[in-house]
Amino acid sequence: MKRPPARWSDGLIALHWLSAAWLALVFALGLAATAADLDAARKFDLYQTHKALGWLTLVLLAARLAARAARAAPKPAPSWSRATRWASGSIHAALYALLAAVPLIGWLRVSSAIVPIPVSLFGLATIPNIAPVDGAFSERMALAHKLGAWTLAALAIFHAAAALKHQFVDRDAILSRMWPWAGDRTS
């Protein structure tokens, strides 16, 4: 039997950090679009940029799932208790679920909105709508999108804090498996 690798693959590590930076930007754009006191043109552009980059997170997620399926996951840290493994597994499952659900719900919100402004990938392509126009449904999706995004942000912060705690308090080198420049020390 093939032994599980000590680290995530380079491709998956690259996609992980790219996703982290990308999602932080999309989240910031979403916050700015909804909260900032801006003129109509700036607000329109912020929404459109948020929608385009947000839709593209689905592509990033698909690439990550493909990279993950292509190679076995590293083995869990030997020091981890059953409860820690369960907690880690649950958080990761929830993160993946939200990474799919939040942009999909956003896409539903845009598709069903009374104001018909589809996702446009910077004028290069227009993403088709996936739901019929329904103002009440769209408003519910907007609320779900917002709650989902905040939950995702909170979970991502918890995920990062847990990785740092494992790395620097428990010293189980868990972060090294996902750290881009730690290959030599752990492989």
Binding site: A40, A41, D45, S120
Partner: peptide, 15 residues
């Protein structure tokens, strides 16, 4: 002209 080319395009569009 509303100050954003993508906004302009939306307003010029069929909707």
């Amino acid at each position: 002209e509303v100050g954003s080319s993508s906004f302009n395009d939306t307003l010029r569009g069929s909707n």
